[in-house]
């Protein structure tokens, strides 16, 4: 029974990932990332409003796509970030991974909710209903529920170290389960609606649609990165403040 806890590695990664180090190297990143994201949003929005064609069926409503698709992409990307953080928490027990996972959950939930919201806005004029039990929308909804459950679990714990590892287990189980959910929902969908309303993307997307879509997707991803870094920094500061106030309480007790 030999427990060699916390074998201290000192490679470049663990040095970069030390919370204190993270605070110092991430600080100068926030502003450029935010500016770049804003710039891409400006370009992307201009392109999607003025330089891309109307749809011959959906008219101007097709422009919702430029917001909807990036959000749908982020709803899954953020879960991927959380799953990687969960591995970091469980395998390497890294405090920065805890913080990354915790900071990503609410962001992921918001992007997923936005994807559903824009999907509903888009669905109203095109399908004639806000909500359709379509395969993609349904599995996105289930994904949102998983995000909300994970956030609830984070909030239920006082001890954040323990919370991180417990949430990591749930996150990974969710990550394994999401493809199964997707598959089952698709199966269920074809069972009840032989003819799908929303057929996958058209044969070829013209460049005038693809370019703004890509730019918007990058802009949203950068927005996520910016918010993620800021909220990780906030979480680290919050934990430090908590430690300080606990120490203050202890020393007040000693006096």
């Amino acid at each position: 029974m030999t427990l060699d806890a916390a074998a201290k590695k000192s490679n470049w990664f663990s040095r970069l990932a030390h919370p204190g180090q993270f605070l110092s190297w991430s600080r100068p990143l926030v502003l450029p990332l935010a500016v770049l994201s804003a710039l891409l949003f400006a370009i992307g929005l201009w392109l999607s409003f003025f330089a891309s064609p109307e749809d011959y069926q959906m008219g101007d409503m097709v422009r919702v796509m430029y917001v909807h698709v990036p959000n749908a992409w982020l709803s899954q990307f953020v879960y991927g970030v959380m799953a990687v953080s969960a591995l970091g928490t469980l395998v390497w027990r890294h405090p920065l991974a805890d913080v990354a996972g915790k900071a990503a959950a609410p962001l992921g939930a918001v992007f997923t909710a936005l994807a559903l919201y824009t999907g509903a806005l888009w669905g109203r004029p095109t399908w004639g209903t806000f909500w359709e039990w379509d395969g993609r929308m349904t599995s996105t909804l289930v994904l949102l529920l998983i995000y909300l459950g994970i956030i609830a679990l984070w909030r239920a714990f006082d001890d954040q170290l323990r919370a991180a590892r417990i949430v990591a287990i749930v996150t990974l189980v969710g990550a394994i389960n999401i493809p199964v959910i997707k598959f089952s929902v698709d199966w269920w969908n074809t069972l009840h609606q032989p003819a799908s309303i929303f057929t996958a993307k058209g044969p070829r997307m013209p460049l005038s649609i693809l370019t703004p879509l890509l730019i918007m997707a990058i802009a949203f991803t950068l927005l996520f990165l910016t918010l993620h870094i800021v909220s990780m920094r906030t979480e680290i500061f919050r934990r430090r403040a908590e430690t300080l106030s606990r120490q203050a309480a202890l020393s007040a007790e000693a006096n």
Partner: peptide
């Protein structure tokens, strides 16, 4: 198991499991 150390676990466990049980 995930909620065993939580006093309020009785409420959270179902919320966590429900979406996983969709399939």
């Amino acid at each position: 198991a995930v909620t065993v150390s939580l006093r309020r676990g009785g409420l959270i466990a179902p919320v966590l499991i429900l979406p996983l049980c969709v399939p």
